[in-house]
Nucleic acid binder design. Sequence first.
DNA 1: ATGAAAGCGCTAACAA
DNA 2: TTGTTAGCGCTTTCAT
Lengths: 345, 345
Amino acid sequence: MGDRPARGATLEDVARVAGVSRATVSRVINGIRNVDVEIQEAVRRAIAATGYAPNRAARSLVTRRAGNIALVVSGSPGASDGFSASVLTDPFFGRVAAGAVDFLRPLGIHPLLMLADTDQAREDVVDHLRQGSADGALLVSTHAEDPLPELFVRAGVPAVLFARPATPSPISYVDLAHQDGAKLAAEHLLARGCRRLATITGPLDVPASQDRLAGFRDAMARHGHAYLPILEGDFKQESGETAMERLLTEHPRVDGVFVANDLMAQGALLVLRQHGRRVPEDVAVVGFDDSPPALACRPQLTTVRQPVEDMAAEMARLLLSHIEDAGRDPASVIFDPTLVVRASA
Amino acid sequence: MGDRPARGATLEDVARVAGVSRATVSRVINGIRNVDVEIQEAVRRAIAATGYAPNRAARSLVTRRAGNIALVVSGSPGASDGFSASVLTDPFFGRVAAGAVDFLRPLGIHPLLMLADTDQAREDVVDHLRQGSADGALLVSTHAEDPLPELFVRAGVPAVLFARPATPSPISYVDLAHQDGAKLAAEHLLARGCRRLATITGPLDVPASQDRLAGFRDAMARHGHAYLPILEGDFKQESGETAMERLLTEHPRVDGVFVANDLMAQGALLVLRQHGRRVPEDVAVVGFDDSPPALACRPQLTTVRQPVEDMAAEMARLLLSHIEDAGRDPASVIFDPTLVVRASA
DNA sequence: ATGAAAGCGCTAACAA
DNA sequence: TTGTTAGCGCTTTCAT
């Protein structure tokens, strides 16, 4: 019964116990064939006997691969209670993380969670990548004009974005056909008889918000509806409340609202009820995302589903291919939204 | 204008450019004094000129430190839509992550996100730690009898738990004085005049749920209330709805409810309104956590605040000290809850 | 105050 | 099929 903490057995130790060379042990560990079955067995036994666990750093040093990737969320320093809290607590981000994790886990790859809400933080992220802490990055930007994509291409760091960057960059991204989604919402609202429509948008400096608005407006116009009140929010619940409040005073006869995400729609629903408006009878509401809050509402939200988890998985797939082949050209993959009809419209 | 991707300058390169030895460059990089100021300058210039970025793997190999830690969430494979989605989308977990990230970031440490919902996954997590991918682990278990803490101590992996483990283990943890929190809730409910109280608990196999229940029951008993209907939930919103539904049929005259977390309380509120009960006039409701959903409810939740972010930061602090000093004895740090009075009670 | 040199543990040619 | 041998890029005694 030895009991020293045994500062880790090395390949050398295993080799000695198994009576073979380090190279051979390395081969069986890395699943390279051309190793006698008998010897494989011996090696395995030696590994078990020594409690050997390969040293990641040593391996990375020679393979030039960290074996994990970075999941970075970039934004501007949250006004009040911190960027970290608001973003990590946002169900949308949770879905992105879940999608990436589920795809990566079977591959033995884990995401390094990094937030970049200041220039300093962004620089740190780039440094970490350059130092090889991670082999590439999955990037979710929460604001337009994020300098990070550009920093990544400049540093030669493999990266994939969630959503098309505001300024063109030679970098891969995954996105949703936002306009199509908005169109789905418009047609559903129109079909159920709404005639006085309005929309609560996301921050208008981000492409996704612009696209959802454009898609909704175009679809309305195509159906002859020239006028569309527009209220701008910031994708958080409270802004949905504020916007709906204003909408109700400025356009009291509104009978249908397209809200650019579920969190704001949730806030809108709250205000609607407070004002005694029945949903969907008096005012129909369609959200966007199909995130958990859509189910937490009463009535439950009719919403445009964005397959976030699948999109995140695709990001990971793309990233891996860029890591594999550094010369690969940037690619974009666009997903289709679907309408999930529940009780609010 | 050279233009090859320049497969990374090394210490050697910097040394050559600066006209000094590798050792000296290493010293200035690691901020070791005893380096001539002139030379420091020269080295810095050389670093800038070469665009040098230290190689993490090489450094880790000699220092035996990965420079990052693991943030692992352990649980059982979610019944329906996956463990990853439900946990990463849970505001409670988001707060833990935010607290850890905020504490660790200034130190240049990032968390490696790992989920462990199967035996296989748990083994993988332990392997990664043993391989030195991370220097230690922050663990949040979502179910009782999680084998991971034990696996960690057995593997000699530094780790700190969120919440006392169901089975005693020589391992550090951070926790809340759940009983005190429940007592706060009980006294508030009693003080506002409620007389027919009930409670919706979390899964009763986890210590936190048991403690909240015990604390509430004891406080009630001390005030002469012998009978307390108990409904068990699972910390998710839907279970709060189900429980409240049952409570209303079995104990229609209930006038106050203590719900073991905000998510379930949110569900309870929904059901209450659906049944035409006014909150807090007919039924007062007190939640637990003070998570984002507490504000998303109408009326907003009166709830027992758990300083999750501070607790997570403390976990990180403890973990770092265990990494620093492997011999350090396990420690526990208990935080005090506070009552946040809003509209629901 | 600085440099020389010995590894850290592993993979990958290259031989045999 | 297996072993030998170079390193990967860095930190760290130990001299100087």
